[in-house]
C-alpha cells in the first residue's frame, strides 16, 4: 500500500493540471492571459530533491510521455524536458541546503525554463505566432503567479509527506 503512494500522488498531480485548466474561472480576468499549471513539474522536483534523484528521473520519463500522448499529441517534448530538469535540479541542489524556500525558488526557476523551452519548440515547429513580448506578459508572468500560489499552499504539506515517506523506506 505504501509503495503505491508515490505513483498515486503522481497521477493526482497529472490529472489536477487538466482539471485546473478546465475549472479555472473564465471571466475574472481577460481571456488573453494564459495560466499554465505546472504542478506535475513541481511534484517531480520535490521527488527529486526529497526522495531520490533516480525516482525523480524515472517519474519524469513516464509522466512526460503520458503528458505528450494524452495532452499535447506532440511526442517527445515533455518526455525529454522532465527528466533533464530533474537531473539538473539534483546537480544544482548539491550546492544548496534543502531548505523549503530554496526548493520553491528553484521550482519557479525551472518552471520558467520549461516555459521558455516549450515556447521555443512551438516557434520552431510553427505552431504559434506569439511574439516574445506577448509570451512574456500573457503567458510567463501569469503562469509564474499561479504556480507561486500553488507552492505557497501545497509546498509544505508535500515536502512533509515526501520526507516522511522516504524516512520510512529507509
Amino acid at each position: 500500500m505504501r509503495k503505491l503512494f508515490l505513483p498515486f500522488l503522481a497521477v493526482v498531480f497529472f490529472v489536477s493540471e487538466s482539471l485546473f485548466v478546465e475549472l479555472w474561472p473564465k471571466h475574472i480576468w481577460d481571456e488573453q492571459y494564459v495560466f499554465v499549471p505546472r504542478f506535475l513539474l513541481i511534484f517531480l522536483l520535490f521527488v527529486t530533491i526529497y526522495v531520490t534523484r533516480t525516482q525523480g528521473i524515472v517519474y519524469g520519463v513516464i509522466f512526460g510521455l503520458l503528458y505528450d500522448v494524452v495532452y499535447t499529441e506532440i511526442l517527445g517534448v515533455y518526455m525529454f524536458a522532465f527528466p533533464l530538469i530533474a537531473y539538473v535540479a539534483a546537480k544544482v541542489m548539491k550546492w544548496f541546503h534543502t531548505y523549503l524556500v530554496v526548493t520553491c525558488f528553484l521550482s519557479m526557476v525551472f518552471i520558467s525554463v520549461l516555459e521558455f523551452y516549450v515556447y521555443g519548440i512551438q516557434l520552431l515547429i510553427g505552431k504559434t505566432t506569439m511574439s516574445f513580448e506577448q509570451f512574456y506578459s500573457y503567458r510567463l508572468l501569469p503562469t509564474l503567479l499561479v504556480n507561486a500560489l500553488f507552492l505557497l499552499v501545497f509546498s509544505y504539506p508535500l515536502k512533509q509527506r515526501l520526507v516522511k515517506m522516504h524516512e520510512r523506506e529507509e
Binding site: 490529472v15 493540471e17 487538466s18 482539471l19 485546473f20 485548466v21 478546465e22 494564459v34 499554465v36 499549471p37 494524452v70 495532452y71 499535447t72 499529441e73 506532440i74 516549450v118 512551438q122 505552431k127 504559434t128
Partner: peptide, 15 residues
C-alpha cells in the same frame, strides 16, 4: 462530456 483539457494550452484541445 469533456473530461480533460490540454494544460499547456499551446494547442487548444479538449478530451
Amino acid at each position: 462530456t469533456v473530461i480533460g483539457r490540454n494544460p499547456d494550452r499551446w494547442q487548444e484541445m479538449v478530451i
